[in-house]
């Protein structure tokens, strides 16, 4: 079991294994996203107050949930970077930040689009909208720090520390609803409690949340694989991967160089 994990943390092994997983996860993502979208847009009943405009919830809620878990994952990867200095975790850390920032932006934009017909304004300074905005700023900080440091492993460790410090902000986001209770309705989506909306509306939402996580996994794996190729381009196996015939020529050139 442990050796399996250790092997997984090697970029080469991860590249090969993830190559085998990727088609399956991608298929599942397409399946869930398709089913979820059709159910959400065509079959879920219209809200008796908001009409059809509530359907953007099926994008807004999953992206808001994913935006927060992305930050959690980034901080966990950061912890692994700082404690065990695993190269793969450095790459994951670097790859999550831009995705997290864009999904947070998506949550903010869909929130505005939903808010306009419902509350009559694009933006409200309420607790949850504001904490999503702060989350976006935290992502920007990590991305800016990452791009400012040239040393790859140093950049990863600096970002790891920053994301762990920023993690202090996540509880504030979660409990902000109770702290500064304002315009925004309290969280409606909880797995542990009986949903406050009918089953036909709730099920598509659950499927969409799963679909978003699957899409995130696919994108993350693709980005990490790309990052592996970029960082390991000097190693033999990457050269072999790009040009299978290059193997002999490298060996011969090494031989010639040695002689």
């Amino acid at each position: 079991m442990w050796t399996w994990y250790h092997k997984l943390s090697s970029p080469k092994w991860f590249y090969q294994l993830s190559g085998q997983w990727l088609p399956w996860i991608a298929c599942a993502a397409v399946l869930f996203l398709g089913t979820g979208l059709v159910m959400a847009l065509a079959y879920a009943p219209a809200d008796y107050q908001q009409g059809n405009s509530f359907r953007i919830m099926y994008i807004h809620v999953p992206s808001a949930i994913l935006a927060q878990s992305c930050y959690m994952m980034m901080a966990v990867a950061g912890g692994i970077v700082l404690i065990w200095r695993i190269k793969l975790a450095e790459m994951v850390l670097k790859c999550i930040a831009p995705f997290g920032a864009s999904i947070t932006f998506l949550a903010l934009v869909t929130g505005g689009i939903w808010g306009y017909p419902t509350w009559g304004t694009w933006w409200v300074w309420d607790a949850r909208g504001t904490s999503m905005l702060i989350l976006l700023f935290l992502y920007f900080g990590v991305i800016a720090l990452q791009s400012a440091i040239n040393n790859t492993s140093g950049a990863a460790r600096a970002c790891a520390l920053l994301s762990l410090v920023g993690l202090v902000n996540i509880p504030i986001i979660k409990y902000s609803v109770e702290w500064w209770n304002t315009l925004h309705q309290p969280a409606t989506f909880k797995l542990t409690e009986k949903p406050s909306m009918p089953m036909e509306m709730w099920l598509p939402l659950l499927i969409m949340v799963v679909a978003f996580y699957l899409v995130f996994t696919v994108v993350l794996i693709m980005r990490v694989r790309n990052e592996i190729l970029e960082r390991e381009y000097k190693t033999n196996w990457v050269r072999k991967l790009i040009d299978p015939s290059a193997d002999r020529s490298i060996k011969s050139s090494v031989k010639n160089g040695g002689e």
């Binding site: 702060i134 700023f137 990590v142 800016a144 720090l145 440091i149 600096a158 920023g166 902000n169």
Partner: peptide, 29 residues
């Protein structure tokens, strides 16, 4: 908290703006 940011950006050329960018969100509470 700003000390953490100052320590992270100390060796960088354009540390000033970067420092504000990474620590200002943490001051909001």
């Amino acid at each position: 908290i700003g000390g953490i940011g100052a320590a992270l950006t100390v060796g960088l050329h354009r540390g000033g703006v970067l420092l504000s960018l990474i620590v200002l969100p943490l001051f909001i509470p």
